[in-house]
C-alpha cells in the first residue's frame, strides 16, 4: 500500500508541476510582450562578433529590447529568415536568386542593409617566409595547380589549403573573387583536397600551428599569431597590398566586400530603430574597434 501511495503522490506531483509550468508561462508571456521585445538575429559567422557587440551596447541604451545573436553562416541565417524563425539575418554575401525567390514565395519582400565592410585576409604561419602573393598565384594555389611553397618563393613544403565550409558567405565570396577572378562564367571550384573547417577559429588555430598551411579569414578574426600576406591584383601584379581599414576604404585591397543585414520586409518599430542605430556613427565606431571597416556616409542610403 505504501508503494501505491508513493506512486499516486508521484503522479500528483507530475500533474501539479505540469499545470504549474503551464500557468506560469501563460501568465508571464503577456507581461513579456508588454514590457520588452526580442529581436532574433542570426547568420554569418563573420558578423557574429560584431552583432554581439552591437547587441550588448544597444542593451545599455534600450534595456527593454532583448537581442539574441547566433552564428551558423550566411546561408543558415537567410534560410532561417525565409523560414520565419528570425527577425534579422546577417550575411556576408548578397542574397542568392533562389533564396530571394523562396522568400517571395513565402510572402516576404527581403530588405538589404549594408552594415559594414570587411576585408578577407590571406594568412600563413609566421614561420613561413612568403610575404607576397599575386592574385593569380593565390587562385592557382586554391585550384590545386600550385602545391608546394617553393613555387611561390617559399620553402620546400607542401601547401595545406584551408577554407571555410560551403555554407559560409566567406567561402562563396573567396570562390568568386579569388578563384574565379570575379568571372561569373568561370566554373572552376576549390581543389578537392582543400580542408573545409567549420569555424573561423579553426582556421586560425591550424594556421597558427602549421607552417604548411594557408587560409583566409575576415580581417576582424585575424590575430597576431598568424601572418597576413600582401596581395596584388591581376592588373597591377607588382603592387602588393596588406588588408587594413584604410586599404579597404580606398579600395586598393582587392578581397573586400560589404556585410549585410536582411529583414523579411521593410522594418518597423523596434527592428527599424535598431537598424537605424546600427547605421549611426556610434555603432559604426564599434565596427572600427572590432577590426572591420565602417561604412562611409554616402553608402548608407
Amino acid at each position: 500500500m505504501r508503494h501505491k501511495f508513493g506512486f499516486i503522490i508521484f503522479i500528483l506531483i507530475l500533474c501539479l508541476t505540469a499545470c504549474g509550468s503551464k500557468a506560469g508561462s501563460s501568465a508571464s508571456n503577456p507581461d513579456l510582450a508588454l514590457q520588452s521585445q526580442t529581436i532574433d538575429n542570426k547568420g554569418s559567422d563573420t558578423i557574429v562578433n560584431l552583432a554581439l557587440a552591437w547587441a550588448e551596447r544597444y542593451q545599455t541604451i534600450k534595456p527593454d529590447v532583448k537581442i539574441s545573436v547566433t552564428g551558423g553562416g550566411s546561408g543558415t541565417g537567410l534560410t532561417a529568415l525565409i523560414n520565419k524563425s528570425v527577425d534579422i539575418a546577417n550575411a556576408s554575401r548578397h542574397i542568392k536568386p533562389e533564396e530571394l525567390e523562396a522568400a517571395k514565395k513565402a510572402g516576404m519582400n527581403p530588405q538589404e542593409f549594408v552594415i559594414a565592410r570587411d576585408a578577407i585576409a590571406v594568412i600563413v604561419n609566421p614561420e613561413n617566409p612568403v610575404n607576397y602573393l599575386t592574385l593569380a598565384q593565390l587562385s592557382a594555389i586554391y585550384r590545386g595547380e600550385i602545391t608546394n611553397w617553393k613555387e611561390v618563393g617559399g620553402e620546400d613544403r607542401p601547401i595545406v589549403k584551408l577554407s571555410r565550409e560551403t555554407n559560409s558567405g566567406t567561402h562563396v565570396f573567396f570562390l568568386e573573387t579569388v578563384i574565379r577572378f570575379g568571372n561569373t562564367d568561370d566554373k572552376t571550384i576549390f581543389s578537392a583536397d582543400t580542408l573545409l573547417l567549420p569555424s573561423s577559429e579553426g582556421i586560425i588555430a591550424e594556421v597558427k600551428e602549421n607552417p604548411n598551411a594557408i587560409g583566409y579569414d575576415g580581417l576582424g578574426y585575424v590575430t597576431h599569431e598568424v601572418k597576413m600576406v600582401a596581395i596584388s591584383s591581376l592588373e597591377t601584379p607588382e603592387v602588393y597590398v596588406i588588408p587594413s581599414a584604410d586599404t579597404v576604404a580606398d579600395s586598393s585591397y582587392l578581397i573586400s566586400r560589404n556585410l549585410f543585414m536582411y529583414t523579411p520586409d521593410k522594418p518597423t518599430g523596434e527592428i527599424e530603430a535598431y537598424i537605424d542605430w546600427i547605421l549611426s556613427a556610434e555603432a559604426q565606431q564599434i565596427v572600427r574597434e572590432l577590426g572591420f571597416v565602417p561604412i562611409v556616409d554616402n553608402e548608407r542610403k
Binding site: G72, G73, G75, T76, T79, I82, N83, E98, E99, A102, E165, T166, N167, D193, L195, L196, P198
Partner: peptide, 20 residues
Amino acid sequence: FEPVRTMTATIASEMGEVAT
C-alpha cells in the same frame, strides 16, 4: 594520413543552410 570528410560531418555542417 590524409584529410577525409565523413557522412555525419557533412550532414551536420550543411543541413543548416539548405533550402527545404
